[in-house]
Structures are given as C-alpha cells and as structure tokens.
Design a protein around this nucleic acid. Structure first.
Lengths: 180, 180
DNA sequence: AATCTATGAATGAAGG
DNA sequence: CCTTCATTCATAGATT
C-alpha cells in the first residue's frame, strides 16, 4: 500500500515562483478579481453552467476589463464551479447514510471565521451591465432539485452589450486526411 | 502534462504507478508513468494523432513494460491530447480582444499584458533516443495549424522508439508499428 | 510558520 | 471529432 498514510508526497523540481520568466510578471495562476468573480457567479446563478466556446470568449473579453484573464480561466471556472456544486450535493447525499462513525462534518462549518464575507457588498461599482436576456427554455441539463433552469449554449446568446454582433456559426470543419 | 502553460513539472514517484495489478492498490483509473507519457508525447509530436487499432496495440504492449496499461488508455490519451491541443489553441487565439478601455481598477498584478504566454520548458537532458523512421521530418512540428498531413494508419510503416540503456535489462523497447 | 481551506489547473474516461 | 463529468494535483490566501 503506497498510500497507507494519509499524505502523499511528491517531488517538485521547479521553483514555485519565477516560472514565467523570472521577471516581475507573476504568472502563477489566474487570480480573479472580486469583480470577475462576481460576474462569473452572477452568470452561474443566472443558470449558465457550461458556456460554449464563443460564450467563453465573450465572457473572457468582458472580464479582461477587470484584469488579466484568459478564456481557459473562464472555462475552468465554470467547470470547477459546477463540479463542486455537484460534489457538495453528493457529499450531503451520502451523509444520509447511518454511518455511526461520523466525524465532525466540515462542509458548512466556518472554522471560527469571524469576518464578514464580502459577497454582496458591491453595488455602485456595477460597471458590467449584465443584461442577461435569458429566456428559459425547456432544456435542462440536469434536473437538480432546487436549481434553476440551465442555460446552455444556444439558448442565450446575449450576455452583455458590448459584445460584438458577430454571430457565430460552426463551420463544417471536416478534415479529411485519409492517406491510403 | 503537455508541458504547457504552467511551465513547471513535477516528478511523480514512478514505479508505484503500476501498482494497479501488482500491488493490490485500488485501481481507479490509469495513471501513466512519466516514461509512458514521454513515449506517448513523442509519438504525438512525431505526428501521430489517430493511431489505428494495431498501432494502439503495439504501443500499449510496449508501454506495458513501464506499468499497467491498456489499449483503451492509449486510445483515450491520443483522443484527449489532440482535442485539448486544439482547444487550447482555440482559446488562446481570440484572446486579443484589445479593450481600448484600460483602467487600473485594483489589479495587484503588474501592467496587464495581453500576450500569448510563452511556453518555455526546459527539456531535461534525457537519454531517450528515438529513432522515428516515418517520413521526411521537419514536417510534423506542429500538427495543429494549417493542414499538416496527419500520420494515420498505414502511413507509418514503422516507429522505432529506442530508449537509452539507462536501465539495465528490459525488452527491446522499440515500437515497430510496421504493418500492412 | 505550520496547517487548513478554497480553488485554479490538469487529465483520464466517457458520452454524443 | 467535440463536449462533458469525475477525480486529482497544486497553490494562494486565510486561520491558528
């Protein structure tokens, strides 16, 4: 049993910092600003769960106003957010089991966290006008109880205003590379 | 790993990976060893994108020396690698949405630079000598942009992946994928 | 400073 | 082929 212990170790052969050139640019990983997180969370709450590629592009462009961001950041954000929502839900679901040995659950337990969480304190700095023209259709990705309609690609194609009016259409993109 | 945007790599304790069948550890999903990834990456870089069933078989057989592996793992690896290469390329492309409006909100980071991240990875001196006898080289350096001819089944007559004799004794370790 | 938590990033495995 | 889910690795910041 390699993983008999609770902790696994690994050897990192690279410096934690200075991976982007050693200069002043700290390119560790994307650190979203509060505004960016707010917009993303808002979109998620609005029902957007798996934005399409073009949607990701637009969102990323919009959020780039608040700081450095890439499309993949948006992509990962939604992936993680969605996955962890389900994860939590699943955890709670498993909690129903009569496991006598039930340690202290730490799902919703803020460990002596006595600070006011800034979740909805920003109201004048609403620069991004999120004109979410989302109209619910009968296409839920997953009928989770207590969840809104899922906004999938194709349903809502207008999040904001400054987005270019360039519509998107997926070209055939058929690469036939048959060498016989 | 794709030695991409992160620019850092870590050494996984190779050897313990193949414990799915020989260690009794729980076998969730295939966890490739660094050697396996190396070979696969080399093949990919050589131009191989969609290996045929026979090629998959041979590759899997050869890679089984380094640990437990199945054909489907090889198949999935190429599928994922190819798809993600394209995805990454696509996400980083339309990133140049130069929002003329640039104001410093509260970006703790240095000047917001919208540039393609330079993926500079230091290639560790490896003793793996690959003898890929395929077709005129220099053609498959980047199989994504443009219409590079892809190495398909039948196109390649033999892959010779010779590994350095750093190790002691092990099979020939050359992927002869010659088949007609 | 060590530890814990939240979360960004990556990838194996499927699904469609 | 393209998209999505699940699990895991890795890390920045909060907590002790």
């Amino acid at each position: 049993m390699e993983e008999g212990l609770s902790g696994r170790f690994y050897i990192k052969t690279s410096g934690v910092r200075g991976g982007c050139g050693g200069g002043g640019t700290k390119c560790g990983r994307w650190n979203p600003t509060t505004e960016q997180v707010k917009v993303l969370t808002d979109l998620f709450r609005a029902g957007l769960r798996t934005p399409s590629t073009d949607q990701i592009q637009k969102i990323s462009s919009q959020l780039s106003f608040y700081g450095k961001i890439e499309s993949k950041n948006v992509f990962y954000w939604f992936q993680n957010h969605k996955a962890r929502e389900r994860q939590k839900r699943r955890r709670v679901s498993v909690d129903n089991k009569d496991t006598t040995i039930h340690r202290e659950e730490k799902i919703p337990s803020p460990p002596t966290k006595h600070f006011a969480e800034v979740n909805h304190v920003i109201e004048p700095a609403e620069r991004v006008i999120q004109t979410l023209q989302l109209f619910p259709l009968n296409s839920f990705d997953e009928p989770e109880p207590g969840e809104k309609f899922i906004l999938r690609a194709g349903e809502c194609r207008e999040f904001s205003h400054t987005f270019g009016s360039d519509f998107i259409d997926h070209p055939p993109l058929d690469l036939r590379l048959s060498f016989y």
